[in-house]
Design a protein around this nucleic acid. Structure first.
Lengths: 264, 264
DNA sequence: GGAATAGTGTCTATGAGACAATATATA
DNA sequence: TATATATTGTCTCATAGACACTATTCC
């Protein structure tokens, strides 16, 4: 069927297609997903101490043309019967075996010739996955083909397509969102200590530094009530000493969504 | 040319296309743009008083199938030789005769069957245009085909395609950004008074209310220095009385980008 | 003088920011 | 007992938030 896609009464030839009036259409609708996680490795020296944490991104080694052998962000082609969001969700599941994680669409990449296979406008997402959820899958998959890379390392690699730019944009986005929303919860257990939260924030946003972090986040619950103390069934304050000698108060995120404003 | 788009070694038929192995591809890459402006109408009674302001969105009456006769967001099809961002910029120029305004990509709309013409993944932008820039074009265009609507009115209309949803999303987005970034500058002259800024904020975000607005925004310049006082070439404070009996201090936005954080 | 907007005074409570000091449990 | 993390004390200054009050100029 020949459809007239012309919405604007175009009469000059400049915007008409060279293909004798038939419009050129995209050759696919791919999605690319920057899947981030934070790994924890216990420090050798002291047992009861904070683990070393590192922000990692999942990459896949391409098995065929184009960019065969190069590492790339996972992704795939959207079907006609699904939205790009559904596609990304599906790809995440196929790649990592996880679902129901925080995933967000953040940009479209549409530079001509960004894909040697044809005209491809890619829809880019980022996903934040808890290390614990990823653990089971890790063992199952072939480490030579699918691997976590520290973002510092991945940023210096030569990735397939324009995935370097996509990764950079994804990083900038999660760094911004890490301090303006409560997405840090994706990298934490449901109940966590202030130190753990602080460490997670610093792992993603190295510049983040707040001397009196504990005072700020716990002061005047009524105002900045994004987290609350956890209590035992008996009603006492729940503590944890998994990473410390002295036990620390456990907190959990509330449903409160703070409204930010530069005009206060 | 038959290309293998399969990135994931798919072997089950479920993800293969019914069209005997040939992938179905999108039928176009449209962009839709929610173009906002704020109109000012002087109040009849008092001359020197704040004008009535209203947030407006530009709509176009469709001239052909599908949704012929319905109002829709302006937009058009992306060419193979441009990015979707360039396409949106071009469409904005064609539609309003303005360029170099604040325009942002905010989402992709990809529900199957959202467009009766075929499989169309639409890329949605919002643009913020100063009333002054739009004025010249207004006279030139056919008001019956291209019109500004108050957003309150447009939100209640039945628009073409899924444009109601797109408009809602665009509104939510600019309301959020209006108080977290300095995009209010798009609706203001380079030099403005505190009252004008406050009025613009309230026009876009009706809930926005700050009793001591002037104190907050002008206190301790070193911290929240998003605006600065304007001075005359002679070094005196520049004032304006276009909207008031008593002259008011003029301000301009600085380049300072405040860093927001829920963790302070 | 009244209207309409601009801007200041004042008061209290809370938060920001910096550091020192103390607390707790374990290896 | 040394160590590593958790938490509180203390002090100063800035800001939040409320609301009354004064200032300026046009009509």
């Amino acid at each position: 069927m020949q459809i007239n896609l012309d919405d604007e009464d175009v009469t000059d030839a400049s915007t008409m297609n060279y293909n004798s009036g038939k419009y050129r259409t995209p050759d696919g609708a791919p999605t690319d997903i920057a899947i981030f996680t934070i790994t924890s490795t216990d420090r050798a020296k002291a047992k009861k101490s904070l683990p070393r944490r590192e922000l990692q991104v999942l990459l896949i080694k391409r098995k065929r043309w184009p960019f065969e052998g190069k590492w790339a962000l996972p992704g795939g082609f959207t079907n006609e019967t699904e939205t790009v969001h559904e596609c990304a969700k599906r790809e995440l599941w196929e790649e990592t075996g996880v679902k129901d994680v925080h995933m967000e669409y953040f940009n479209a990449y549409s530079a001509p010739n960004r894909d040697p296979r044809g005209w491809m406008i890619s829809h880019a997402f980022f996903a934040l996955v808890n290390e614990a959820e990823l653990a089971s899958r890790e063992a199952a998959s072939d480490a030579a083909e699918v691997r976590l890379f520290p973002v510092s390392e991945a940023a210096g690699m030569e990735l397939a397509f324009d995935h370097n730019a996509i990764l950079q944009d994804a990083l900038a986005k999660i760094r911004e969102k890490m301090v303006t929303t409560t997405i840090a919860k994706s990298f934490l257990p449901a109940e966590f200590t202030i130190s753990e939260l602080y460490q997670i924030l610093q792992t993603v946003v190295p510049d983040f530094e707040e001397r009196n972090f504990i005072r700020k986040i716990t002061s005047t619950q009524s105002r900045r009530g994004i987290i609350e103390e956890v209590r035992t069934p008996g009603g006492e304050l729940a503590l944890s000493n998994r990473h410390s000698q002295r036990a620390a108060q456990l907190y959990r995120f509330t449903d409160y969504v703070p409204q930010l404003s530069i005009y206060r």
